[in-house]
Design a protein around this nucleic acid. Structure first.
Length: 557
RNA sequence: UGGGGCGUCGCCAAGCGGAAAGGCAUCAGCCUUUGGAGCUGACAUUCGCAGGUUCGAAUCCUGCCGCCCCAGCCA
């Protein structure tokens, strides 16, 4: 893991012998949605930092609000963390496991005169809180006796009071310039079943109360969170200082904040992602265009590429938007080494090789990956009628177009050099529907005559042997780099973010490939078999294109 | 007009008083049976701005300017 300011802090702590040389972090998702690439940054950071410093990282579900959370998210979160390549062993915890201990901590504070039951309504609490520039007013219930507070708090737990009627508040400072210190709510009454504790509780701790103390219970040394919690740190520290949790150990956890990840051409907030799903702009949380882990996985991204990305973006406190081109670079780099090459024609154009024997089929040898000879070779069938890409032919080619055109020669990858002799067009539309070519038998790949230079090599597929497939091409979900700064981010949705090509032709070697199999389609990009595939028809997702010099020249990029 | 955080190349990001790492992107060339990959080279006399301290400042001081976060019984 590369150096960053948090590692610097850990290094310093280790040097000073703080925490007895222990490092313990935690990844604390709330089970109320799916994980996205921003979470991946946090996961890589927390697990990575622990790993790099001989420590461990816990998985802890921050499930203190039963009205927003659901077990269904727990499994997906675990699956995503595991898929990213991290392991919490038997350390999967829940804040709800600590409800009894947290309750005791609250009793402690009450007994010490540092917390009180407040009968103000939510609206009144808001009024009493003051504003950014004016101090708040003390609650009239602030100076209840310890006995009364104890009694009331027990009765809150017993379910004697309705939702919102009372809260437990810390007694700190209503005049603090930091609003979080103006007697923050520690417990609220919520008569709702919890996904893990059922109806055992009707009072639930707030994040502010539960988080630092859960960290203390788990003896977390470095509690890493995002920037917006910086204002909560004084409260975090206040609780760590004012609660006696020594029976759990001597470590006093400390909170460290870093900037969350933003990516160009997408949105990251759960609220916005949820809108995309619920309003049907995407097919689900795992739509391959989504920045969710599930979406990236389905798209075909590898965990290695995502981890590499998370390392390269660095960790700092500056709000930033990372160019999605870096993520794309990371998958390309990973897949270039790993993905077998295969030929697939996305928009087929029929080519008849007039001088090739009618019924002849040659099985030609093709490298699976020129970057890695040890990945071996395979045989691809060549015959009289083949398909090439429509984009690889132009009747009136512009200047820098190197591909096939009337009278021009190109090489067919792993096969022969062909020349275009005749163009067949649809009489009414003028559309090119077929090409007649001739091949040079002396130019077979690997033979001495194959050395002749031609400008470019095309991919192709034998018509009689090709298997049909659907290919889904993806583009950015949003047109602008930062849809977050728009009044209406939905107005920025890219109408062409998904393009389905239903009649693609692929070389027969890919037949039967299971979902999740990744290939490089020669000259086009990296593709992954989608779970929508059936025995009759494979469905592929384009993970990312190859870099495309021609697209740049032609201005189609 | 409160508090907290942040301002180094188009995008990330090192740097912590001795004189601007690296990655992505971009551009140019080489190479290539993927216009892929690979290789080579170019790319901040300058660190939000203005003063000051110092032999010496992106790094220290002062003052401005700009951006982000906070008034949920969300996290």
């Amino acid at each position: 893991m590369p150096e960053n300011f948090i590692q610097d802090i850990i290094t310093e702590d280790l040097k000073e012998g703080k925490y007895g040389g222990r490092v313990r972090t935690r990844f604390p998702p709330e089970p109320n949605g799916y994980l996205h690439i921003g979470h991946a940054k946090s996961i890589c950071l927390n697990f990575g930092l622990a790993q790099a410093n001989g420590g461990l990282c816990n998985l802890r579900f921050d499930d203190t609000n039963p009205t927003k959370e659901d077990v269904k998210y727990v499994e997906s979160i675990k699956e995503d963390v595991r898929w990213l390549g991290f392991d919490w062993d038997d350390r999967c915890y829940y804040a709800s496991d600590y409800f009894e201990e947290l309750y005791e901590f609250a009793i402690q504070l009450i007994k010490a005169g540092k917390a009180y039951v407040c009968d103000l309504s939510p609206e009144e609490i808001k009024e009493y809180r003051g504003t950014l520039t004016e101090p708040g007013k003390e609650s009239p219930y602030r100076n209840r006796s310890v006995e009364e507070n104890l009694d009331l708090f027990r009765r809150m737990r017993a379910g004697e009071f309705p939702n919102g009627s009372r809260t437990l508040r810390a007694k700190i400072d209503m005049a603090s310039p930091n609003l979080n210190m103006r007697d923050p709510v520690l417990y609220r009454i919520i008569h709702a079943p919890h996904h893990r504790t059922g109806d055992k509780w009707c009072i639930y701790p707030t994040y502010d109360f539960a988080h630092p103390l859960s960290d203390a219970i788990e003896q977390i040394t470095h509690s890493i969170c995002t920037l917006e919690f910086a204002d909560h740190r004084p409260l975090y520290d206040w609780l760590i200082e004012n609660v006696d949790f020594s029976k759990f150990g001597p470590v006093k956890p400390k909170q460290i904040e870093f900037a969350r990840l933003n990516l160009t051409h997408t949105v990251m907030s759960k609220r916005k992602l949820r809108q995309l799903v619920e309003r049907g702009y995407v097919s689900g949380w795992d739509d391959p265009r989504m920045p969710t882990i599930a979406g990236l996985r389905r798209r075909g991204y590898t965990p290695e590429a995502i981890r590499d990305f998370c390392e390269r973006i660095g960790v700092a406190k500056r709000n930033s938007i990372v160019d999605i081109a870096l993520l794309e670079h990371c998958v390309r780099e990973d897949l270039n080494k790993r993905a077998p090459r295969v030929m697939a024609v996305l928009r087929p154009l029929r080519v008849v090789i007039d001088n090739y024997p009618d019924d002849q089929v040659e099985w030609l040898e093709a490298e699976n990956n020129p970057e890695k000879p040890e990945m071996g070779t395979r045989r691809v069938p060549f015959s009289k009628v083949i398909y090439i890409e429509q984009d690889d032919f132009m009747e009136n080619p512009p200047k820098k177009f190197y591909r096939l055109a009337p009278g021009r020669e190109v090489r067919l990858k792993n096969a022969y050099i062909i020349r275009c002799d005749r163009v067949v067009k649809d009489e009414r539309t003028g559309q090119v529907i077929e090409l007649h070519c001739s091949y040079d038998p002396n130019t077979k790949s690997g033979s001495p005559g194959a050395n002749r230079k031609v400008k470019v090599t095309l991919h192709w597929v034998s018509a009689a042997h090709a298997i049909p497939a659907e290919v889904r091409l993806y583009d950015y979900l949003f047109l602008s780099e930062n849809p977050d700064e728009l009044e209406d981010f939905l107005s920025d949705l890219n109408p062409n973010s998904l393009q389905r090509l239903e009649s693609c032709m692929i070389e027969p070697s890919v037949a039967g490939a299971p979902p999740g199999t990744r290939y490089q389609f020669l000259r086009q990009g990296y593709f992954c078999v989608d779970p929508d595939s059936t025995p009759e028809k494979l469905v592929f997702n384009r993970i990312v294109t190859l870099k495309d010099e021609w697209a740049k020249v032609a201005g189609t990029r």
